[in-house]
Design a protein around this nucleic acid. Structure first.
Lengths: 260, 260
DNA sequence: TCGCCGTTTTGGTCTATACCAATTTTGACG
DNA sequence: CGTCAAAATTGGTATAGACCAAAACGGCGA
């Protein structure tokens, strides 16, 4: 319980009238705090998308220091139960989207298939010269023209990922003139007759660094999931190279595999 | 910078002699702290597996409050750069293990293939009655005998995951009498002629709750990765159901897929 | 040399307070 | 009724100090 043993201090500091403390009897303060809020969510008192009481309000509700309150909130955040909007408040997380890297439908279709509302926003589209790293991936000379597309994607109006896509400009000339606010894959197929035969996907828990965090409007350093995908056509040529940064609470990966 | 504006306070509080502050000029304190330690790791001054100076030592080194120091360390922890052993200290993280859920080699072999030293420890093996959830998964009646195996697995002496495996006792009678400290799959194949034809894998960032956290000897609530795998044989029968909890910094998922 | 036990160190938890910057709300005004 | 600026609120950052429990350490004795 309390830092100083849990008994003496509780007596000397009267602790204001906090009647609803039945679930706070055992263990550490910040975990009790966690349970208190988790309970209110599980009971349906707080529903997905709804805002939690402010930290200072919770402080008086449960009678703890604000630092302890926040410790508990961070727990729930790590569990994906709540999330925060910077300086606006804490909110109850909606359920995650299920993602199957082996299925080659785009983001838009699988989000829709799950009864959610997807949206895509193109942040920028530029032509860049191929650098050393991309040269290796695409097996093209350094300096060759490439398209770089940055997009932000939403589920039910919540930004869940930012991505940077690179496509060989020689393979898909004039790509940037098409609308990129829907599936890129379908554009590549319908306008350039390019289809994907092989997919290399890497996923790793990460921290969202400044750039990604800003784009997702979350605090820098929050946990996220990095997904890097390289797509190849039937000839083994690299079609696109995509790096996605997901909110850690927005995604569930599900793969169904026939063992080779 | 400082809570109160960043300039006035810096002047009025002289800040002790801290010569090595060249990298702490810009931005927030805890991020400067982060960069300071990250720099010492990147430069090779601190190597994988090595212990960081104590928090109180860092406190005098960089001249910040301990809370701020910790904030910076939490950042690096979220990024997977450092990890902690409870009440022992902070350590530089070793590189992650690459895991391909589509490849049906066991943990032992793929860890070894990456030049690391795998180990498995069986925590418990018991026979349990099939509950409602398992009944649904295995399509077996409630109460049917099942084997429950709990294991902890290591890479280079660091515990990286705990898992709970359930196997139908009727399918593999006497399974618990075999040694389970190596690949379970090979035991199933060699002794019961069971081989896996299909694999359903779910992965999701999570928080390590008390039980898992204790088994991995980390603080409860730390981010982790939950991996749930259900394996089927050629007849579509469930062979095993496995739930793994990984340290978030120990794993990198890599999938190579031929698109269907 | 090995094992035990007290001491020191270390991270873990908690309180209290302060101020900032962004957001949200309020209210006066046109 | 809509607009816009002022005020209040909210989370974000930071300090300082305190005590606990587990881990690491050091030395003593068998």
């Amino acid at each position: 319980m309390f830092a100083n043993g849990g008994f003496a201090r509780r007596a000397e500091t009267p602790m204001p009238s906090t009647p609803n403390r039945t679930d706070l009897v055992e263990g550490l303060h910040y975990l009790s705090m966690r349970d208190h809020v988790a309970g209110r969510i599980a009971s349906g008192e707080l529903k997905p998308g709804e805002r939690l009481p402010s930290e200072r309000r919770l402080q008086t509700d449960v009678g703890m220091a604000r630092g302890t309150i926040r410790e508990g909130l961070f727990q729930l955040e790590a569990e994906g139960v709540i999330y925060r909007k910077d300086r606006s408040g804490w909110y109850v997380s909606p359920p995650p989207v299920v993602y199957d890297p082996t299925r080659w439908e785009g983001f838009m279709s699988y989000v829709e298939a799950q009864g959610r509302r997807p949206a895509t926003e193109t942040l920028s589209k530029t032509e860049i010269p191929c650098d050393a790293a991309l040269a290796q991936i695409f097996r093209r000379p350094v300096g060759a023209p490439m398209y770089l597309i940055r997009r932000r994607r939403y589920v039910d109006d919540r930004a869940v990922l930012v991505e940077s896509i690179v496509v060989d400009a020689v393979t898909a000339p004039g790509l940037l003139e098409h609308s990129l606010d829907r599936s890129l894959t379908s554009v590549l197929k319908s306008h350039y007759n390019i289809s994907v035969a092989r997919n290399q996907v890497d996923m790793q828990p990460c921290a969202l660094t400044r750039e990604e965090a800003e784009a997702l409007r979350v605090k820098s350093g929050l946990p996220g999931l990095s997904v890097v995908r390289t797509s190849y056509d039937a000839q083994g040529r690299v079609v696109e190279h995509d790096r996605e940064f997901w909110r850690h609470d927005a995604l569930k990966i599900s793969v169904d595999i026939r063992v080779r």
